[in-house]
């Protein structure tokens, strides 16, 4: 009997101590982690929709339990001095391997002000180049429907990564469509 109880009791003590330790570390780092992800998001929003004294209002956020709209996971409306300035929309189009999380900034006229790929699992050296300025800077100034040159659009696709380039383009188009459908832009 002792042969069963003793090892089990010791294992129980080890796991209990480990759980307690993890609880303490989780509590102490929780705020710093939340602050980091808020900072990253804030920096990305400022990069895609540059402007002075913008106030953001969240219209849709899957993190708060809202249902996604297509692949759109987050929509924020930006106002400056009470007037509509633009929108920041996060879309999750499917790339070569998994979702390519793309944040698009669109001004009140429905023109893209900036675009960033926030996270992805694309091939290093190929699709992963979507985070390179030479690719994402092409999107600024585009409106209506965005597509790569192969599909008759104006976006120069990344060499050997057409699928990723198409995904980002479709994310941009989806964001523009959302604004058209929701009557945000004039």
């Amino acid at each position: 009997m002792n042969e069963i109880i003793k090892p089990s009791a010791i294992l129980l003590i080890i796991t209990a101590v480990a759980a307690m330790l993890l609880g303490v570390v989780s509590e102490t780092t929780k705020e710093a982690i939340a602050a980091q992800s808020a900072k990253t998001e804030q920096a990305a929003m400022e990069a895609v929709l540059p402007g002075e004294g913008l106030e953001f209002e969240t219209l849709l956020d899957t993190a708060n339990g809202d249902a996604p709209d297509g692949t759109i996971s987050k929509v924020s409306k930006a106002t400056a001095n009470g007037e509509l300035f633009g929108y920041v929309i996060t879309t999750n189009p499917s790339g070569f391997s998994g979702a390519v999380v793309t944040m698009v900034g669109i001004d009140a006229e429905g023109v893209i002000t900036g675009l960033r790929v926030l996270s992805h699992a694309e091939t290093p050296g190929l699709g992963a180049l979507a985070t390179d300025p030479s690719f994402y800077e092409q999107f600024a100034g585009k409106s209506g429907k965005v597509a790569v040159t192969k599909d008759g659009g104006e976006i120069q696709a990344i060499t050997s990564a057409t699928i990723t380039s198409r995904a980002v383009s479709s994310g941009a188009t989806e964001a523009l469509d959302w604004i058209a459908a929701n009557g945000g832009a004039n």
């Binding site: 993890l22 570390v25 780092t29 710093a32 982690i33 980091q36 992800s37």
Partner: peptide, 12 residues
């Protein structure tokens, strides 16, 4: 897990 929390918090 502790290292992962630390990295998330201080070396994102």
């Amino acid at each position: 897990t502790i290292i992962q929390f630390m990295l998330q918090a201080y070396l994102p």
